[in-house]
Design a protein around this nucleic acid. Structure first.
Length: 487
RNA sequence: GGCCCCUUGGUCAAGCGGUCUAAGACACCGCCCUUUCACGGCGGUAACAGGAGUUCGAGUCUCCUAGGGGUCACCA
C-alpha cells in the first residue's frame, strides 16, 4: 500500500581514530557519502573507539578536518548531533549489554568463562595438529547453577554468539551477489569482552540497526564475517541491511596501501602540493567508473553520477603517475591568481617570491604537475651554476656551437645594455629583430642567450621570460660570464 | 591449510552471448607545433590467466586448474 514510499537511504562512515586518514580510508568515506547523496539519503559519521589501546590523540579531529577539507558534510555525527546519538561508540558502551543479555535469554548467545590463556593453549594445540581452531562451545552447556556460582565468585567472562552448527547462511552483497556459507564454518565469536565493552562486530550490528543504516558499506575484509552479522540480525528479528563491500586499494598486486608501509596518505599529497579536488577525483575513479568516458569530476558531479553498478569487484592498484597527471590537469586550469596562491609557499621556499609572479605563472603554469616541483624547477633563477659546461652552447637543432654562440652574445649584450626599459615586449622585439636582421633562426639566437642566463639546457620558459625574472643586472652579468666562458 | 572473494594491455578500466580481428585514460614510443623543456595535436606498441564444457556462436554462462586477495583474535 505504501510501495511508493521508499525508505530513505542512510549510510555511515565509521572510522577508528587510530591515526592518519589513509587514501583507502578516505575512499571508503567518500563512497559512503556519494552513495547517500546519489540516492537522496543521509550520511552519518560515527567514531568507533572501542579499542582504547589503539586510540591516537587528535585522530578524531584529523578525520573531521580531512572530510571537511574535501567537502564531505555529514548529516549526523558526534559534532553535529542527530536523532540517533551518541555517535561516538565509547559513549554508547552501556547500550550493548542489554542486547547481549537478550540474546542469552533467547539462546543465541552464552557466557563463556574460558580464559584467554586456556584458549590460546587450545588454539596452539589445534594448530599443532594442523587443524583450524574453532571454539568448541565448551561453556554453552554449563549448568545454570555453575554459571551462577562463577558469577558469584566474580569470575570474568565474555559473551559469545551461539552460531548454529548445521545449515547454511547466505546473504546478498550489492556488488558480489549472493554468497552462501556453511554454518559449520562459523565460529562462536565474542560479542562482549571481559571488560564489558562490545567487540567491533557486535557494536556494529547494534549501532547500524539503532541508527537505521540501510546500506552497510565497508571493506571487503568483512565479507566473510557477514553471515555472522546476519545471524545476529535474525536473532533480534531485525531487518537486514543491504551490504556493499568495497575492495581495497593496493600499493601493488600483493600489498594493500597502508601508512604502515610508508605509503602516502591524503595529507602527504596535500603537503606535496597536490590539489584536493584532484585527489578526490582520482580516488573516486579507483574502483568505480561512471560507465561512460568522463574522467573529470567535481565532488558535486560525483554525487550525481555515483552508483554501485560502477563499483569494481577486484582491488585497484594506486597509480601515482595517473594521480599526478590528473593533478597537472587541474593545475593547468588554475587562473594566475589561484596558481600564485598555491605556489607562493613554494616560491618562498625556493627564494623567488620577490620575482614577477605573472611571468612565473607564465613559465610554470603549464609545467608544474604538483607544487613541490617548483623549487627544483627554478633553482637556476636563484643561483647560476657557474660550472656548467661550454658544450651546452652547442645544439644541433638550434644550429649553434661555441663560435656562433660567442658572436651572438657579443652582439646581444651591448644591445640589451642599451635598452631603455627592461620589459618583456621590448626585449622580445629587440632579439627577434636582431635575429631577422642577421639572417639567424630565432632558435640560433635565443639558445645561447638562454644557456648563458640559466646554465642549464632545459629550463621552464624561454630566454625572454628568464631575462625578465632575473632583471637587467643579473641577466647581463650572466651573459657576460657566458661570453667569458666562450672566449 | 579450511572457507569466501577476485582474474581484460605495465596501471585504471569499458564490455553484461553475436555490433570484439576488444573502447577510453595513464605510462611508453614516434611525428607535428615550438625559443630548450613542458603544454597541445596526430599516430603507434600492448590484454580477454590456462583447460574443458554449454551454445549455431563465449571476454561474456558452467566446471576444473593456476595465480592473487581476504578471513579464521576478548583488533577494528
Amino acid at each position: 500500500m505504501e510501495e511508493n514510499k521508499k525508505m530513505t537511504v542512510r549510510t555511515r562512515f565509521a572510522p577508528s581514530p587510530t591515526g592518519y586518514m589513509h587514501i583507502g580510508n578516505l575512499r571508503s568515506g567518500l563512497y559512503a557519502y556519494l552513495f547517500a547523496r546519489a540516492n537522496g539519503g543521509k550520511f552519518l559519521l560515527r567514531i568507533e573507539d572501542t579499542d582504547q589501546e589503539r586510540y591516537v590523540e587528535g585522530a578524531v579531529e584529523l578525520i573531521y578536518r580531512t572530510l571537511k577539507d574535501i567537502g564531505i558534510n555529514w548529516d549526523e555525527g558526534p559534532d553535529v548531533g542527530g536523532d540517533f546519538g551518541p555517535y561516538v561508540q565509547s559513549e554508547r558502551k552501556n547500550l550493548y549489554m542489554p542486547y547481549a543479555e537478550q540474546l542469552i535469554k533467547s539462546g543465541h548467545a552464552y557466557r563463556c568463562f574460558c580464559t584467554k590463556e586456556e584458549l590460546e593453549q587450545r588454539r596452539a594445540e589445534a594448530q599443532a595438529r594442523g587443524e583450524t581452531f574453532k571454539y568448541d562451545k565448551h561453556c554453552l552447556h554449563m549448568s545454570e547453577e555453575e554459571i551462577q556460582r562463577r558469577l558469584a565468585e566474580g569470575q570474568s567472562y565474555v559473551i559469545r554468539q551461539n552460531v548454529p552448527t548445521e545449515g547454511e547462511t547466505s546473504f546478498t552483497d550489492e556488488i558480489f551477489g549472493t554468497i552462501t556459507v556453511n554454518n559449520s564454518e562459523l565460529d562462536d565469536n565474542v560479542l562482549i569482552k571481559a571488560d564489558g565493552m562490545p567487540t567491533y562486530n557486535f557494536a556494529n550490528v547494534i549501532d547500524d540497526h539503532l541508527m537505521n543504516i540501510t546500506h552497510v558499506m565497508r571493506g571487503m575484509e568483512y565479507l566473510s564475517s557477514t553471515p555472522k552479522y546476519n545471524l545476529l540480525y535474525e536473532a533480534f528479528g531485525w531487518e537486514i541491511p543491504k551490504y556493499i563491500h568495497m575492495t581495497p586499494i593496493m600499493k601493488d598486486a600483493q600489498h594493500k596501501l597502508s601508512k604502515r608501509n610508508g605509503d602516502a596518505s591524503y595529507e602527504d599529497f596535500i603537503n606535496k602540493g597536490y590539489l584536493k579536488e584532484a585527489i578526490v577525483n582520482y580516488v573516486a575513479l579507483l574502483g568505480w567508473n561512471p560507465g561512460d568516458e568522463r574522467e573529470r569530476f567535481t565532488l558535486k558531479e560525483l554525487e550525481e553520477a555515483f552508483s554501485v553498478k560502477g563499483m569494481s569487484k577486484s582491488p585497484a592498484i594506486f597509480d601515482n603517475e595517473k594521480l599526478t597527471w590528473l593533478n597537472a590537469q587541474y593545475i593547468r586550469e588554475l587562473s594566475e591568481e589561484e596558481f600564485t596562491k598555491h605556489a607562493m609557499k613554494w616560491y618562498e621556499m625556493a627564494g623567488i617570491s620577490h620575482m614577477n609572479t605573472s611571468v612565473l605563472f607564465k613559465i610554470l603554469g603549464q609545467r608544474v604537475e604538483y607544487f613541490a616541483q617548483i623549487p627544483d624547477m627554478v633553482d637556476f633563477l636563484v643561483k647560476l651554476d657557474e660550472e656548467y659546461p661550454v658544450e651546452f652552447f652547442t645544439n644541433k637543432k638550434s644550429k649553434t656551437n661555441s663560435e656562433v654562440s660567442k658572436s651572438v652574445l657579443e652582439m646581444v649584450i651591448p644591445a640589451l645594455k642599451a635598452l631603455d626599459e627592461w620589459e618583456e615586449t621590448k626585449i622580445h622585439d629587440l632579439l627577434m629583430n636582431m635575429a631577422a636582421e642577421n639572417g639567424l633562426k630565432n632558435g640560433t639566437l635565443l639558445w645561447p642567450v638562454r644557456i648563458a642566463m640559466a646554465g642549464k639546457q632545459v629550463t621552464p620558459g624561454g630566454a625572454i621570460e628568464i631575462a625578465i625574472l632575473l632583471g637587467r643586472d643579473e641577466s647581463l652579468r650572466r651573459l657576460e660570464y657566458g661570453l667569458k666562458k666562450l672566449s
